[in-house]
């Protein structure tokens, strides 16, 4: 009798749990799972521009993409951009966290000033920088003050990706710095006190205590930042449209371009699938690094 009541109660709790979770689960299915299945299914179809007819086309979209020199260039641009940008953001946000963790005057103000750009929407950041980086803009005026020649920035194939990297870093540093500061606060003071008694200097404490114990928050920042950077779209769409000469044609912009501008939905969705796989591999590798750290 008692057992039957207990079973009923357990079943009811499960039902309640399912019912409480259902809004989130339904939203998850509708907004993540269904679009993902739709992307995968459309990636195997070809839509005729002339008639709008859609037909199953096997692996043709993937074959086309993987043999298209344009897509190779997109992959190279995206990977190089991420290989440079993400480690730079991790190193710089850690450095800023370490600096603002010192007993500096007005430290709260400095931290806030570093964080403020993170609260500005990406499109606004892009517009501010587009004005600053135009050939007769603020940045070139500053370069002229120190006697340097004007730079073409966003109008040059060799500088455009770098310029976008700078503006992304400017917007992201403060945000990621907060996570590193949280990690710094977690390091027990006792360790520093013990090191001080042993006569360790600032640098020694940094390399033997701070950085090893910051490895987890730094790894988190690297993973989250990598995902964000792979999905970068607004600055490219607003500032360069992938140019000059494809030098800023990052994968998200290329997907948008193929799907919405060229109307090549099948290839656009195949590219989405490739991006998902690429991100899954990169994140899996980064998680592995995180796990080793835990052991």
């Amino acid at each position: 009798m008692y057992r039957a009541t207990a079973t009923r109660r357990k079943a009811r709790s499960t039902l309640v749990a399912v019912a409480m979770l259902s809004p989130a689960l339904i939203a998850l299915v509708l907004m993540r799972v269904v679009p993902m299945i739709s992307a995968v299914s459309q990636s195997f179809r070809h839509v005729s521009l002339a008639t709008g007819a859609s037909e199953f086309d096997g692996l043709a979209n993937y074959t086309y993409l993987l043999t298209d020199p344009g897509f190779h260039s997109v992959l190279v641009v995206t990977l190089v951009f991420n290989l440079v940008l993400n480690p730079a953001i991790v190193v710089l946000s850690t450095a800023l966290a370490l600096i603002t963790a010192q007993r500096l005057p007005l430290v709260g103000l400095w931290r806030s000033m570093i964080f403020v750009p993170a609260a500005v929407p990406g499109a606004v950041v892009a517009l501010i920088w587009s004005t600053a980086l135009q050939p007769d803009g603020l940045v070139n005026a500053l370069l002229a003050v120190v006697g340097l020649p004007p730079q073409p920035f966003l109008t040059s194939a060799s500088q455009a990706a770098f310029s976008i990297g700078i503006m992304v870093t400017w917007g992201a540093l403060g945000y990621w710095m907060i996570f590193v500061i949280a990690g710094l606060k977690d390091i027990p003071d006792a360790l520093y006190e013990a090191a001080a008694i042993d006569g360790a200097g600032w640098w020694r404490r940094l390399f033997s205590i701070t950085l090893p114990l910051l490895k987890r928050p730094m790894a988190f920042v690297l993973i989250a930042c990598t995902v964000g950077s792979f999905l970068l779209f607004a600055p490219v769409q607003i500032l360069t449209k992938g140019g000059p000469n494809g030098s800023t044609n990052l994968i998200m912009f290329d997907i948008y371009n193929r799907t919405y501008l060229l109307g090549d939905v099948g290839v656009g969705q195949a590219e989405v699938v490739i991006l998902m796989l690429l991100l899954a591999v990169i994140v899996a590798v980064q998680f592995r690094l995180l796990r080793e750290d835990r052991s």
Binding site: T155, S156, G242, G243, N245, L261, L262
Partner: peptide
């Protein structure tokens, strides 16, 4: 037919030429 592909492609061409291609 293909105008929807042609117009953005032409835009990229003009933009690159403006930037020195």
């Amino acid at each position: 037919v293909g105008y929807s592909v042609f117009e953005p492609g032409a835009g990229q061409l003009f933009s690159d030429i403006r930037n020195g291609a």
